[in-house]
Design a binder for these strands. Structure first.
Lengths: 193, 193
DNA sequence: GAAATCTCTTGACTTTTGTCAATGCTGTAA
DNA sequence: TTACAGCATTGACAAAAGTCAAGAGATTTC
């Protein structure tokens, strides 16, 4: 039930069977149907969420009602409105399921208690966020300083698994482009080959 | 000499005088003249750097030789090529001094040893990176999903202290714009008022 | 299985942004 | 003081991206 959660954990910090059992007390499983919300704008984000199965997206809604996608999450990925989670303030993000999902949730209270009681958990969290930060910085560099075609290639390489499961107009939104522009970039690249 | 370093540390995790002394063993002070490099592309990033005094910028250089600025750092801020630092691989970033600087450096070895020996250091690092991640995610959202004028306003609010010390064409580079476009955005906004 | 909905692509046009060049301003160095 | 370099602004033009609309395939839904 928590297979992928512990697989990811052990990749960074290895755990004994006893330690895994100890952590399990603090985890909550959750299933989500396609299109259901995990988090809605305005609510306080109460959980960090790891995906065991399925896919989700996080997005903003602007004045005109358009979705602006800020993140995807597939199996083994973590998704949350971290700003809302850490500060316990209303979320600006919405998160919902792109497919039926099986999730593992860590509540704010569980998170705090695990940090206190288990140094390995703190280490895992530190490494998790460090990796996320490095990846995000990389992505920011691409966005600000690479021409569009290079950026597209970088994204496809980085996120191949997403490309196969998510409609292109969502990828476009994630890249900050209109769907039409993304479509044209794609045809430009395939013509060159 | 390490005033701001420990001020920032204590804001997140409070230290006794003994603990401060313990940490001091692992810190190295460094002065940098304006225009000197802290890190050059291709070198391995050997330090995390906190700014006690002065200002620095981190940037990429593209094929045409243009600088693309990815970060600034003022007093109390941390700057580094974290990807290079953590993986000990050649850096893609350059970092140099915009003004004469006084810095506090933590070497990779010191960092590892402090993580081992001092849980409070690990906690501090976790919180530091968490804050950096949340801020970067915010910035990413602005860049991808806000119209230019809103983005400009968000940047100026977020980075007022930078605006007063850094030429505008560097701000433009940081925002991924040409200097001319930034200048036009500014005049458009001031005409509206 | 037919209708409705989604998705992607393409064309025409508009808007935005980048590029290049010129100007004026400021501060620095000779 | 004069020359020079760096910086911000502006205009004219070119390139890039967005918007709107139409159409063709898929997929979903009933």
């Amino acid at each position: 039930m928590y297979d992928i959660f512990f697989q990811k954990f052990n990749e960074k910090v290895s755990l004994t069977a006893e330690e895994e059992d100890f952590i399990k007390q603090y985890l909550t499983p959750k299933k989500l149907r396609k299109r259901q919300y995990l988090l809605q704008e305005g609510d306080v984000c109460k959980h960090i969420c790891l995906v065991e199965k399925g896919a989700l997206k996080a997005y903003l809604i602007d004045e005109k009602g358009n979705e602006s996608i800020t993140a995807f999450a597939l199996e083994g990925w973590t998704i949350s409105d971290l700003s809302s989670f850490f500060k316990q303030l209303p979320a600006t993000l919405n998160i919902d399921a792109l497919e039926d999902c099986e999730l593992v949730l860590i509540s704010k209270a569980a998170h705090e208690e695990l940090l206190q009681k288990m140094p390995k958990y703190e280490t895992y969290m530190r490494l998790l966020i460090t990796d996320a930060y490095v990846a995000l910085q990389q992505r920011m560099t691409y966005v600000l300083h690479l021409p569009l075609e290079e950026r597209y290639k970088a994204f496809t390489q980085m996120c191949q698994s997403i490309y196969q499961r998510v409609p292109q107009h969502m990828i476009a939104s994630f890249m900050g482009l209109s769907p039409e522009t993304l479509s044209r970039v794609r045809s430009r690249i395939s013509n060159k080959k």
